[in-house]
Nucleic acid binder design. Structure first.
Lengths: 345, 345
DNA sequence: CCCGAGCCTGACAACGTTGTCCAGGCTCTA
DNA sequence: TAGAGCCTGGACAACGTTGTCAGGCTCGGG
C-alpha cells in the first residue's frame, strides 16, 4: 500500500478547495475552475501545474457549491414503496439507467406505503433541489407538491395516479390485465372464480377488482361475495381467505390473485389441496415456470414502466413536454399451466 | 383542485428564498432562518407571520446552500452492483432503514459490475459530499478513495473486501458456507460433486470455490477438473457447463451452485434430467420451498449485512469507531430436499 | 517601432443559507 | 426613576463554486 503525500496539505476531516489548489499551483482561483471543468483558455503548461496540485491535494469539486451557483443538481429522486419488493428492482434499475444516460444521479427512498413518509421523503428531495421526481405514490393527496410543480420540478407518477393534482402518470393497464386474466380462466371452463386482492382504496387494487368484475359480467356470471377477499395483505390472512373460498358452501375452482405477494401465498395454499385449483396471478414471479404446474400470470413490464417514466421526466426537463398525460402500458398474459387447469368440482 | 396564490410571488421556475419570505413577512432574513429551523428566540406572533409567508410562497429551504454552510449533508451513498438482483433488495432496504433512523437520505446507483463505473459513481457521490459510503465493490483497486477517507468520508465495503486500502468490510462467511454446503452433500453420500461458479477473480467466487475444495479435501475426495466450471455467468453457458458435468465420462451426482443466478439455471437443467441429481445453491431464492424438490441452499442474510454495514458507517461518523475491521456474518444451511437426495449413478 | 487584435489570466460578485455579533426595547429591581 | 439584564431581531460575513469582465501579455502587420 503506497504512501501518499496528502498529510502535509490537508488536515484530517478538511477537504481542499479550489482556493487551496490555486495557491499550491500558483494560479488564480478561476483558472482552477477552468481546468476542473475543462473550459478552454488555459495553457497546457498551466493546466499541467493545476492538475498536479489537484492530484497532490486530492481535490474533489464540491458539488453543493456548484449546485448553489448553477441551479441544477443533475439528480432526480425516486420514491418507491418498498425496495425489497421484486417488482421495484427492475423498475428502479431502468430509471437509473435513463438517469445515467442523462448524466443524472438517482436519489431514492421508500415510503413503506406510508403517506406521511412519502410526503416527508418527497419534500426532503425537493429541499435537495432534485431536478425531477419519480414517485410511486403511497398517499392519495398530492397537493403538497403544487409549489414544487410551479417551481419547475419535473414529476412523473408511476403505478398509480397522483391525487388532486394534474401530473404525468405511467402505469400498467390494471383493469385490462385483470379482465384478460379472469377471462382466460373463464375460457377454460371456470365459473366460480375467487379474487384475492388488496384494499380497493389502492388504485391498482381497485382497477384489478374492476377488471375481475368486468370479466365476470361479460360472461354473465354472477359473483358471490364469498369469492372476494379485499384488503387482505399479510400472508396469514391471505392464507385464511383463500382456504375459506376453497372450502365454503360454494367453493371456487379457480383463483385470481391480485398481486405478486398474494400469488405466492396462494400457491402455498393450493399446494396443500388435494383438488386441483386453477390460478392466475397479477405480476410475474421468479421461477414461476419451474413450479408444478407453472404459474400463469398477468405480467407487468416493470422495466418499461420505469424507462417510460424516466424518459418523460427528462423530456419535461428539456421543455419538450408540457401537458401532463396518463400512459397505460399493456400487460401480457403468460400461460404456464396453472391458469389452464380445468375446473375440478 | 384549489387555486393557490403563488403566481403573484414566484415566477415559474424560480423558487422563493428566505429573503423573499422575510420581505413578505416584514422581518429580517435571519428571523426566517430561525423559524424554519425551529430555533428559539422568536415571538409567537412573529413566527406566525413568517409561517404564513412561507405557506403563501411555497417556500422550501434550499439544502444545497445549507450543506455548503454546515458541511454535513445528512446523506449517504450506496453503490451496488445491480439493482435488479434480488439479493440487493433487502440489503438496500436495510441500509435505508438505518439511514432513515439517523435522519440521512440514501443516494444510490449501480456499477453494473464495471470497475470504472463504480469509481465514477463513488467519486460523483463524494463530489456531492455524502457523509458516508456503502460500497459493494466491482473493482479490486480502491486507492482512488484515499483522499476521501482522509477527508473523513465514512466508508464500509460490503460483500467483498476493498482493494489496496484499509477499510471496513462486512461480508458473509463465503468460505465456511460453501464448505458446509458441500459437506452436506458429502454427508448424504455424494462423492462426485460439481461446482459451477463465477470467475475466481471475484472474491466471493474465489472463497466459495475454496470452501468447495476444502470440503472435498476434508473428505479425502480428489476433485476432477471436469467437475468445476468457473467464470461462467450467462445462463446459456451455465446450462452447457452443467450439462457437460452431468454427462461426461465421470458424471457428477450432485452440484453445488456458486450463486443465485447459477442456481436458477441449474434447477432448469436438472428438471430436464431423468436421473435425480442433488443440488445445493449459495444464496437463497424465492419460492425455493415450492419447487419439487425444494431447493436446499446456503442462505446469506442480506438484511443483516446491510444493517451491520450501515450501523458501522454511522458509528464511524459518530467517531465511536476508528480502526477498520472485517466482519464475517455466518450463513445458514436451509435444507429443503434437493440437497438431501441420495446419489443416483 | 508602434498599435491593435487576440489570447490568458485573475479579481470580484453572486448563489441561499447559517453563525456571530450587536443594537434596541423591554422588564424588573433598588 | 434610573440602571442592569434579558429577549428579540437584524446586519454581515462566510461556505466553495461559477459568470462577468477587465487587464496584461504576446504577436503580427503597418
Amino acid at each position: 500500500m503506497p504512501q501518499t503525500n496528502l498529510r502535509s496539505a490537508t488536515r484530517y476531516g478538511t477537504r481542499p478547495t479550489m482556493k487551496d489548489v490555486a495557491a499550491r499551483a500558483g494560479v488564480g482561483l478561476k483558472t482552477v475552475s477552468r481546468v476542473v471543468n475543462g473550459e478552454p483558455g488555459v495553457t497546457p503548461e498551466t493546466e499541467r501545474r493545476v492538475q498536479e496540485a489537484i492530484d497532490a491535494l486530492g481535490f474533489r469539486r464540491n458539488d453543493s457549491a456548484r449546485v448553489l451557483r448553477k441551479g441544477r443538481t443533475a439528480s432526480i429522486g425516486l420514491v418507491l414503496e418498498d425496495l425489497a419488493d421484486p417488482f421495484y428492482g427492475p423498475l428502479s434499475r431502468s430509471v437509473e439507467e435513463v438517469a445515467r444516460a442523462h448524466g443524472a444521479l438517482l436519489i431514492n427512498g421508500s415510503s413503506a406505503e406510508d403517506p406521511d413518509r412519502e410526503q416527508e421523503l418527497v419534500l426532503a428531495l425537493c429541499a435537495r433541489r432534485v431536478d425531477g421526481l419519480v414517485v410511486i405514490p403511497a398517499g392519495d393527496d398530492h397537493r403538497y407538491l403544487e409549489p414544487e410543480l410551479k417551481a419547475g420540478v419535473a414529476t412523473v407518477f408511476v403505478d398509480r395516479p397522483a391525487g388532486h393534482i394534474d401530473a404525468d402518470v405511467v402505469l400498467s393497464d390494471n383493469f385490462g390485465g385483470a379482465r384478460d386474466g379472469v377471462a382466460h380462466l373463464i375460457a377454460h371452463g371456470h365459473r366460480r372464480i375467487g379474487f384475492v386482492g388488496d384494499m380497493p382504496r389502492i388504485h391498482t387494487a381497485a382497477e384489478r377488482l374492476r377488471g375481475y368484475r368486468a370479466a365476470m359480467e361479460d360472461a354473465g356470471i354472477p359473483v358471490a361475495d364469498s369469492w372476494m377477499s379485499l384488503g387482505v395483505t399479510d400472508p396469514e390472512r391471505v392464507r385464511r381467505a383463500a382456504e375459506e373460498m376453497l372450502s365454503g358452501p360454494d367453493p371456487v375452482t379457480a383463483i385470481f390473485a391480485g398481486n405478486n405477494r398474494v400469488t405466492v401465498t396462494v400457491i402455498r395454499v393450493l399446494a396443500e389441496q388435494t383438488r386441483r385449483v386453477a390460478l392466475v396471478g397479477f405480476d410475474d414471479i421468479e421461477l414461476a415456470d419451474l413450479l408444478q404446474p407453472g404459474v400463469t400470470v398477468v405480467a407487468q413490464d416493470a422495466a418499461a414502466i420505469g424507462r417510460t417514466a424516466a424518459e418523460r421526466l427528462f423530456r419535461q426537463l428539456d421543455g419538450t413536454l408540457v401537458t401532463p398525460e396518463r400512459i397505460e402500458l399493456p400487460t401480457r398474459l403468460i400461460t404456464r399451466g396453472s391458469g389452464e387447469l380445468p375446473p375440478a368440482d
